[in-house]
Simulated assay, not measured.
Amino acid sequence: MDARSIREAAPGDLPFLPALEEASDTLLGAAAGMRSAPADLPPAATLPEFAAARGLLVAGWPPVGFARLEELDGQAHLEQLSVHPDAAGAGLGRALVEAALDWARKQGYVSMTLCTFRDVPFNAPFYASCGFDVVPAPDGELAELRQHEISVGMDSLGRRVAMRAPLRR
């Protein structure tokens, strides 16, 4: 599956996304860089949260991957990237990130941020290969998001980091 098969989500896609997110989270269970099991992750987004997303891209039918996009500090924010374990390792995550970056460019954003696990190979190192750099001292809404992640125990699962990619036209 490539970027051409990624599309904006339709209402019929939404019921599949919470279970897809939960399945994707199981990939963290055996991942290097994690201190705790994925069962300790916050619950998957709800249908109303998916429906209210600023942007939502999906791949496949039923969806086997998605990118949930929000806005922070007036810029695009990749809130969640999920790929079903059965579809992992085939480039779908990269295609979704590329589609998300393209979506953000078309919306007129100049950068995209995200928060992820620093030491999980298919998290921060993967995003770095997609053009994201670590934000050493987040501020504004990105800093607030990091504080929220800390307060709900995300950093106890593994070291977290904020990242940003500039969007070149």
Rank of each mutant, 00 (worst) to 15 (best):
R4K: 15
I6L: 09
I6G: 09
I6A: 05
R7A: 02
R7M: 03
R7I: 08
E8M: 14
A10E: 14
P11C: 00
P11V: 09
G12C: 12
G12R: 14
D13W: 06
L14M: 11
P15C: 12
L17V: 11
L20E: 02
E21R: 06
E21L: 04
E22A: 15
D25F: 14
T26R: 08
T26W: 08
L27N: 10
G29Q: 10
G29H: 08
A30I: 09
A32C: 09
G33Q: 04
S36P: 03
S36F: 14
A37G: 14
A39K: 13
A39N: 11
D40L: 15
P42E: 10
P42Y: 01
A45C: 10
A45L: 04
T46F: 06
T46C: 07
L47A: 15
L47P: 07
P48V: 06
E49G: 07
E49F: 10
A51H: 10
A53T: 03
R54H: 15
R54I: 01
L56F: 06
L56A: 01
L56G: 02
L57N: 05
L57C: 05
V58A: 00
G60T: 07
P62H: 06
P63G: 00
G65H: 00
A67Q: 00
A67K: 01
A67G: 05
L69D: 01
E71L: 11
D73N: 00
Q75E: 14
L78K: 01
S82I: 04
V83R: 07
H84R: 01
P85C: 04
G89C: 09
A90F: 14
G91K: 13
L92K: 00
G93L: 08
A95D: 04
L96D: 06
L96V: 02
E98C: 15
A100S: 06
L101D: 01
D102I: 05
W103T: 00
A104H: 02
A104I: 08
R105D: 04
K106H: 12
Q107N: 07
Q107S: 09
Y109M: 12
V110Q: 14
S111Y: 10
M112L: 02
C115L: 14
T116R: 02
T116I: 07
R118S: 13
D119S: 12
D119A: 12
F122S: 01
A124Q: 08
A124P: 04
A124S: 07
P125M: 05
F126S: 03
F126L: 08
F126R: 02
F126G: 08
S129T: 15
S129G: 15
G131D: 04
G131S: 06
G131N: 01
F132M: 08
F132S: 02
F132T: 06
V134K: 11
V135K: 03
V135P: 10
V135H: 04
P138F: 11
P138W: 10
P138T: 12
D139S: 12
L142G: 05
L142C: 00
L142V: 10
A143L: 15
A143G: 12
E144M: 07
L145M: 13
L145R: 13
R146D: 15
R146L: 15
Q147Y: 03
H148W: 13
I150R: 12
V152G: 05
G153R: 06
G153T: 07
M154E: 10
M154G: 01
D155P: 02
S156M: 14
L157I: 02
R159C: 12
R159M: 13
R160H: 08
V161W: 07
R164N: 11
A165R: 00
R168I: 14
